[in-house]
Design a protein around this nucleic acid. Structure first.
Lengths: 152, 152
DNA sequence: CTCAATCCCTACTGATTCAGTATGGTTTCT
DNA sequence: AGAAACCATACTGAATCAGTAGGGATTGAG
């Protein structure tokens, strides 16, 4: 019942991008430093996020990443499934209940399925735009302006 | 985002017990055979389930296990947490949001927390009594009586 | 045109967890 | 006494995780 570090880091990175939407590409290195994510590990995450069509990359010097769609249209579910594959709580989950070998109908499978579905609902209902808003409120109220925000 | 085999097997075993509530102790071996669970692995699960106060054991020949409370009062959450420890989706989940090193408030943590909470709700709202009913309906309609049920 | 910055990709590795086995005990019924 | 059952701990092979390594390919700047 645990997501891996990929989701944890990946969502932080995507929120970071959402907070800088429209300001040109953001380098993986900058994100890595701001969010305390190992640089090479983050690179791998971006490969998956790009292949899922969530971010677009600009190569070469002064390159970086940007959201490929408006932050309002990207959900946590998109991010998590891009990084971890299809969501499920147990091996015996999913459409087919009868993976148990005997091919019998299984009451337990229904529970696992409902749990997966509940998580999917939460993730699918949360957009990067909302999270970026929340994050920026946190940063303002905590009196900790980021380098990008606190210019003067 | 996966529960382990402990939950999967453990819930099957508990449903099995719930289906035989009030009929005296059921041996781990019988459950192991009916549910296709490795015998020694199942024994380990029962250690945890007993320590959590969910089943009581009768030792010695003709011994076995029985639910320690009515099946209506035992939820899937009880079973899963007895076997896997406290439920959570990420390491950065739970009451404290700021495990991220920097001690900052984290928008991502709120999502993980809501997901955990959703699963907890599903699991907490499902009792063994319901699942036993469902399971027995399956078995009747599938024309596959178990040894215990189809006597004649 | 060179060079540094950046993205791209694959392979590797140490640590941890998982799933299951092994071994030997203790208790109780027959 | 002996078998049936629960109790407890330790071990192990395989898989997964989290991260590192090492090299490519692309592009802006000087």
């Amino acid at each position: 019942m645990r997501l891996t570090a990929k989701s944890e880091y990946g969502l932080l990175a995507m929120i970071d991008l959402a907070c800088r939407e429209g300001a040109g590409p953001v380098s993986a290195r900058a994100i890595s430093e701001r969010q305390a994510i190992p640089a090479k590990f983050l690179e791998q995450l971006f490969v998956a996020l790009r292949q899922a069509g969530l971010v677009s990359a600009v190569r070469g010097a002064r390159g970086g990443f940007a959201l490929d769609r408006p932050a309002e249209t990207i959900t946590v579910l998109d991010v998590v499934e891009a990084l971890e594959g299809p969501l499920r709580t147990t091996v015996c989950d999913g459409e087919r209940a009868a993976a148990c070998g005997k091919g019998k109908a299984c009451a337990a499978a229904g529970v696992w399925e409902r749990a997966t579905s509940a998580v999917r609902t939460v993730f699918g209902a949360t957009t990067l735009a909302e999270l970026a808003d929340t994050q920026q409120e946190f940063e303002v109220s905590a009196d900790v302006p980021t380098e990008a925000a606190g210019g003067s």
